[in-house]
Computed example of a mutant assay.
Amino acid sequence: MKFGFLTGCLQNMSLEEKMNYAHQVGFTALDVSCWPRENTRDYSGSDIDVENLTDAEVTKIKSDQQKYNIEFSSLAYYDNMLDPDPQIRATYKAHLEAVIIAAEKLGTPLVGCFTGKNQTKSIKENFDDFEVLFTDLVSFAEQHHVKLMIENCPMPGWQEDGLPATISYSPEFWDEMFKRVPSSSFGLNFDPSHLAWMHIDYLDCLRKYKDRIFHIDAKDVIVDEEQFHYYGIFGKKLNRQHEEDLGFWTPVIPGLGDINWSEFYNVMKEIGFDSYFSIEHEDRRFADNNKDVEAGLEYAYNHLNPIIHEFK
């Protein structure tokens, strides 16, 4: 199993500099942020300009990977693939296809994305659109020898009221997704932290969906049960401090939250998971600058590495 992190958390660094840093810490993989060069998404990054990727750049990147002993676990591009604006949706699709082509050129096995949601349509209508779009996208990925995966985040920050803005955040939706697009090349980038704050049993999900879990995001969360019982399952609605402020949960570095990673890893072993395990750094306390981000990554590395390598 390869251990890494999502690269977008480190800003104003080249991809080679990130590989060098990862190697120095002890990481063996990177989940490479591949948003468009011009974008306004939070937690995004553009470490590879996939739409203009040249053969010379591919050669250079592969050489750097060998130099620093770093695999790419995935190329990451997470936007609302079901955006209600047809022109925006077409732009997102074209960029995701460029990410898939780049992954093939680089020998990267996985591409991560979101489903998103069209808030002007019903859930059934969204799934009808999803089936058409993702049947095409998964087929395109297969043609390029890449697997496509969805992260199970509800994206409450995309909606003013903080309600879910994807149709892929729960087992109910996963069952519908895989019924509509049954290809074995379509799966999950499994993030237990979102399941935890939604009060879904992530260990049970890890077991039940083991054949669809291609990649695991190591992200932790603190759930304030007292505030949960105050705000309820739909979360805080007044005086929110930021987009994701639902009042009762906070994303944190692994080891500083509620998830028992030793228990989690035991289930990973039980199901035979041996793919990619990758820190997704969204802890606002370690985000003011790259030095703080690195402190967070290294804390998480020092907490998780002994667990997943079973150091005595």
Rank of each mutant, 00 (worst) to 15 (best):
A295Q: 15
M268P: 01
M149S: 04
I253E: 12
P171F: 07
L96R: 02
I123M: 06
V32Y: 04
D83S: 00
A218W: 05
D85E: 00
F114S: 04
G232R: 14
L82S: 01
Q66Y: 08
E131R: 15
E298V: 13
G116C: 11
L75A: 02
L15C: 14
E142Q: 14
T135F: 07
H229C: 13
G26W: 09
R41T: 03
Y68S: 04
K208A: 08
P156K: 02
E176W: 06
R207C: 07
V32N: 02
F248R: 09
F273C: 06
E310K: 05
A98H: 00
N266V: 00
P182N: 14
C9S: 15
G4A: 13
L6N: 06
D220G: 07
D245W: 01
A287Q: 13
N126C: 15
D245S: 03
E125T: 15
N69Y: 07
H303N: 14
D245R: 01
Q159T: 03
L163D: 01
F114R: 01
S185E: 14
D49H: 08
E225M: 07
I123V: 11
D292C: 09
L203N: 10
G4D: 12
Q227G: 05
D283G: 07
V181G: 04
T120E: 04
I123E: 09
V181D: 03
N118Y: 01
Y230V: 05
A196T: 15
F234D: 03
F27L: 08
T108L: 11
G116F: 08
A300N: 11
S14H: 12
E225G: 02
S193G: 11
S193W: 11
M177Q: 14
Q241S: 09
N52S: 15
V32K: 04
A98E: 00
L96N: 02
L137S: 08
E131M: 14
V181A: 07
D211W: 13
I259Y: 05
F286T: 10
Y169N: 02
R180Q: 14
D64Y: 10
A141L: 13
D31C: 00
E104D: 15
Y265P: 03
Y68Q: 05
Q24W: 02
H199Q: 12
A295Y: 11
I150C: 01
N290K: 09
K67M: 10
F72C: 03
P156T: 03
H303P: 03
